[in-house]
Design a protein around this nucleic acid. Structure first.
Lengths: 170, 170
DNA sequence: GCATTTAAGTCAGTGTTATTGACATATATG
DNA sequence: CATATATGTCAATAACACTGACTTAAATGC
């Protein structure tokens, strides 16, 4: 701590508060993510699923017909890790596969009705949390939130984030 | 997906874009957190540590003299889970304990010089990422980012996030 | 002073998520 | 037909988390 305050004092002059500010930002990210995932995690327990299952259900729901390799690029996990989770979801009929007609090596993934139900159950809780924060913060703050988060994401993945058709009116 | 668009169309009239917007927000959180932790995770591997070790190092660094139970409340994990991680950090001399003078049941935690070095190594990378995003986004966006994230955090934990002395000048 | 509570630590067993490495199969493409 | 690509699988390992039961030491309330 002694060292950290030393560091802060010896940075670019007009930005004394930089360290404290960045530290705060990192804590905000940690706590927000912790609480953002918490409710969905609790629901998943009832299905003997974990956060990884949610991620798959979410991204398959958001991108119907997504292939296995596209999903791997989004999640940045190994094929073997995905395999277990995806296998369980297919086995329990939350997700189903269809071989691509043009390229029969590709398996396109879709949510079943059951899968869509679970996706809604999980995502709705999280949506409500975010919606509450959006409403309280106002449209301008929401725009700032998006801009900063986009800046934190690796440049090559920024285009992966879904873009709503028009800008916000909160 | 069919169901989800149905849902969107049947919500409060002036907010057609709500679903897509909230979905985007959730993806931004996912990708930003994924990339935010990625670099630090890679460094931790060299020490045979994981993200949990980083969290302990971070919060002990930010709150010198924090007690074990306070740390548990922040991390929201069990005593047994913390025990392994904290034990390793103490064993490897990244963290040290000192019995509280007033209440000798309490163990106050501090980073050693070695621990502070590692904390800096890890946090600096993440700071730079956030600093870059802040710089690109501008002061107003930063304020919005903070407001929205604060709103996502459970009300009872909002006061836990460190507050810099004065508002931003980015 | 003694019962109770609190703070911390420990032992044992389990489960989820992830990893690396090696390999198999089917299909597409040059 | 050789090579590359997409997917899947087997095996071993590790990090991180959990539940449940228990211990020790110290503080606190009556």
């Amino acid at each position: 701590m002694a060292d950290s305050s030393f560091r802060a004092k010896h940075r670019a002059n007009p930005l004394f508060l930089r360290d404290a500010e960045l530290r705060q930002a990192m804590e905000l990210l940690f706590f927000a993510y912790r609480d953002f995932t918490q409710e969905a995690d609790a629901i998943l327990t009832d299905y003997s699923f974990g956060r990884a299952h949610h991620r798959v259900i979410y991204f398959v729901g958001a991108n119907p017909g997504i292939t296995v390799s596209e999903l791997l690029q989004i999640l940045k996990i190994t094929k073997q890790s995905l395999s277990r989770v995806l296998g369980e979801l297919i086995n329990d009929s939350f997700v189903h596969q269809r071989t691509d007609k043009a390229d029969r090596r590709r398996r396109r993934l879709y949510l079943t009705a059951k899968g869509a139900d679970l996706e809604r159950l999980l995502t709705d809780r999280q949506s409500q949390r975010v919606a509450g924060a959006f409403r309280a913060a106002g449209a301008e703050a929401v725009e700032g939130f998006r801009t900063v988060l986009r800046g934190i994401i690796n440049e090559e993945d920024r285009q992966r984030v879904a873009r709503p058709a028009r800008p916000t009116a909160v």
